[in-house]
Design a protein around this nucleic acid. Structure first.
Length: 476
RNA sequence: GCACUGUUGGCAGAGUAGCUAUGCAGCGGCCUGCAAAGCCGUGGACAGGGGUGCAACUCCCCUACAGUGCUCCA
């Protein structure tokens, strides 16, 4: 495909034409979950965004190598130097081994993502599987004078890295004068962050290193795993917008400090979901879990809900809105199902005619997706096609209808919004029941006809009477 | 305090230098055993103030407000 893809690059704060290092191949790393709690809607939205990015790149013909990590060690409840390991803390509360908790949460994560059509990454490495490589990186950074040991711990010396904070546009002088609280007086600079942390006695998740028995700093894993599986320079590095000032800033310092090469050519960041205008977050306890959303509106509408806003827009979330999006989703499904039913009962040849219209819609869709993943614009094209489906069906314009169906399927697949399929015998069965019901209605036996409607409804078939003789249905 | 981002109709949410979407909700009508839907029609927005332009909601500057980050969070 020849479409040029444009992505908003956080580093330049501009939309840029996407050019990978090797033509046709994309080395893509996204920061994954720290696995200790349920996936909430805000987390899920971010993973949906990366999934849409991957699907779009593949749709446009790229071979994408996607690596997304699981953080299972080193992510602390406080800043990089103080506080307890999040996983260890939660595991202690549940009276289980930290790694048991991690395994449970990783399984849950995959299960949840499968439900909303988020494809698995090519590689999903765990931090604990890369302790040796992390130690190697720390050693290299010490050799290159980017890091120093302090009482068994190792810190990155941010003054040794000229461009520290450049992508985030940090004003280091003001950070020091501002809200940052200095806790460790031994550090060279208040902003120096831990690469290796000496473990207190009661700490469970600890590993042997040249400096102490301890554990790695949180930022280290992404530098190590992206390098191991994707190379020195990534084409795209993605993460939540909150990662810009600290996590990604530190990753850049580590990776570029070690390789002296550019760490990532494109930085893509996903904006937050808010609740009543405030960030949805674990600490604010204002979150809705993905499971709750799916329970409320179903998995297809859940995916639709998480896809409908542009990824860089801070969208407000509520279950009420999600119910709204549910309606929109099933409006599309209904058009799809009516078209399937119509074609199912069709006899005779389908004549070849002009198919420009659907192709034009598809071009609009391609253009929208190539323009920094403009999903709202793309969804408009889906609505348009759904409407066209109804029109072609009513007109009996079968060729156009089939073409439009193809286009709809393509667009839904790229966005990862699932269609609900109907089997042939399923269509026949429901139609038979409906024929019976229409007869009962004609005889004025509304009790019996309502019973059939209720029965079908319990099987997720939604009936809508168009007239005394005609009933439309679709499946939820 | 400093930095970044944003401010579009009742709500959600795109977009373009000159005509603006789309969806839900609303209003009027048709249809209707009930339920639900459908169809036709319709009103409704570009935070405020400057500037550049033949023309700005769209570009630039300032102000106000909001969100996020600087402290764990996608």
């Amino acid at each position: 495909m020849t479409d040029e893809i444009y992505l908003y690059n956080t580093e330049t704060r501009k939309k840029e034409k996407f050019i990978p290092q090797v033509e046709g191949v994309v080395q893509f790393y996204s920061c994954g979950q720290t696995v200790y709690e349920d996936v909430h809607v805000g987390n899920a939205k971010t993973y949906v965004v990366w999934d849409v990015l991957v699907k779009t790149l593949r749709y446009f013909g790229y071979h994408v190598n996607h690596v997304q990590n699981f953080t299972d060690v080193g992510h602390l409840t406080d800043d990089a130097d103080e506080g307890e390991d999040k996983i260890q803390k939660k595991a202690k509360a549940l009276k289980m081994d930290p790694m048991e908790l991690v395994d449970i949460k990783i399984r849950e994560y995959h299960h949840n993502m499968d439900k909303i059509e988020v494809g698995r990454p090519n590689i999903a490495p765990r931090a604990t599987g890369h302790i040796n490589e992390m130690i190697d990186l720390v050693r290299l950074l010490i050799e290159k004078k980017h890091a120093y040991e302090l009482d068994g711990s190792v810190y990155y010396d941010i003054s040794s890295f000229e461009d520290y904070g450049k992508m985030a546009r940090l004003d280091l002088d003001n950070l020091e004068a501002g809200a940052r609280i200095e806790v460790n007086t031994g550090k060279k600079n208040p902003g120096d962050f831990a690469l290796w942390i000496k473990a207190p006695k009661e700490h469970i998740m600890k590993y042997t290193s040249p400096w102490s028995i301890g554990y790695p700093g949180w930022h280290l894993e992404c530098s190590v795993m992206s390098n191991k599986y994707l190379g020195d320079t990534l084409d795209i590095h993605a993460g939540g917008i909150d990662h810009i000032p600290v996590h990604h800033t530190n990753e850049i310092a580590q990776s570029e400090g070690a390789t002296d090469k550019k760490f990532a050519n494109y930085w893509v960041h996903s904006a937050f979901i808010t609740v009543n205008g405030k960030k949805m977050s674990k600490s604010k306890n204002n979150f809705v879990t993905l499971e709750e959303l799916i329970k409320e509106v179903g998995r297809g509408a859940a995916r639709f809900t998480l896809t409908q806003a542009h990824y860089r827009t801070q969208a407000d979330f509520s279950l009420e809105q999600a119910r709204n999006f549910r309606k929109r989703y099933y409006r599309i499904i209904k058009s799809y199902h009516l078209a399937l039913q119509y074609l199912h009962t069709l006899e005779g040849e389908i004549k070849d005619e002009d198919r420009n219209y659907s192709e034009k819609i598809l071009m609009n869709f391609n253009k929208a997706m190539a323009d920094d993943l403009n999903t709202p614009q793309a969804i408009i094209q889906i609505n348009t096609i759904a409407k066209r489906l109804d029109q072609y069906r009513k007109k009996g314009d079968n060729f156009q209808l089939i073409k439009a169906l193809e286009v709809l399927r393509t667009m839904m697949t790229v966005l990862g919004i699932p269609l609900i399929e109907l089997k042939d015998d399923e269509i026949d069965n429901v139609n038979n029941m409906i024929s019976l019901r229409i007869k009962l209605k004609a005889n004025g036996d509304f009790d019996a006809s309502d019973k059939i409607r209720d029965h079908l409804s319990s099987l997720n078939y939604i009936l809508q009477d168009i007239s005394a003789e005609e009933t439309q249905w679709y499946k939820e």
